[in-house]
Amino acid sequence: MDLEQLRKTAAEVVAKDDVKYLIGWKKGTYGYRVSPVFIENEADTEDLIFSPLCTANLVTYLTLVEKPPLPRGQKPDTRKVALMVKGCDSRAVAQILVEKGIEREQIIVIGCPCPGVIDVNLLVAKYPEVAENTELKWSGEDFVLIRGGEEIPVKREEVLAEKCRLCRYPNPVVSDIMIGEPVKPWQTEEDTGVSELEGKNVAERWEYWEEQFARCIRCYSCRNVCPLCYCEDCILDRLNPTWINRAVNFSENTAFHIARAFHLAGRCVECGECERVCPVKIPLGRLNRKLAREVRDNYGFEPGLDPDGKPFQASYKPDDPEDFIL
């Protein structure tokens, strides 16, 4: 991608009077980190980057905005928000539009066709992180790591994130401005994580998830990072009724993860953020992708493609499968 073009476009967008800020990515403070950035004036657009390290899904910030009570007489800020999206992120935008969580006129979507991002854990395992900020770029099919003036070629299959191996929509499905040329969708791999578990029997699966869920510390980063977890009053924060107790034990953790996965059934756009941020490495994506697979195979539905469509769980077809009914 042409960064010059990105920065120029961003500067034009930010210069408009009716734009509050632009959400993009900038270099992080060390190593391979990239940090989301909120840009309010033209000069700061120089910080913007778009690279295989830009894993964070910025759509989260659209619904994460807090609305504290305003002082008397002050009007709410109704200016637009611009944001950069990759293919998977744009599906989250579409899904939120379907759910009428945001209004289309309130956002400016800058689409960035994405040839695939990396899994930072895989990259670190292969090329240990150093203190100085390191760049990674796309180069043909593969990546190239720029560190201390040296260019190290990195094979795509070695470090590509799992969600990207399964990605079918590398090009944004919703956008106002598109930066660069669309990329050609690649051959997706089989979702072995889900298939492997499907092949086990229920007792083995229970054992597997027991081990995973027991580890959860309930920091709720999976919930907070998810662009589609935006209920104003989340059941996890509610005390009356208490659906899920705050106690951290296997029972409550399992209930939490079942509830979280289920609330995303037919909504999850498989951006993989929940899995990426989990501090105790629970493979949460498998739960979501399993449900996405069921929804796709049995109901012929895929979320986040048509902004004018209907939500999966708030619609039905008379001939939905009912082989499970007694």
């Binding site: 699966r205 229970w206 027991e210 289920f262 739960l287 769980q313």
Partner: peptide
């Protein structure tokens, strides 16, 4: 109809969790 869709998926999830 909504119940069928919702609980059908929920059954799949329960089964997947074990």
């Amino acid at each position: 109809y909504y119940a069928r869709r919702r609980l059908g998926i929920f059954k799949d999830l329960l089964e997947f969790v074990g």
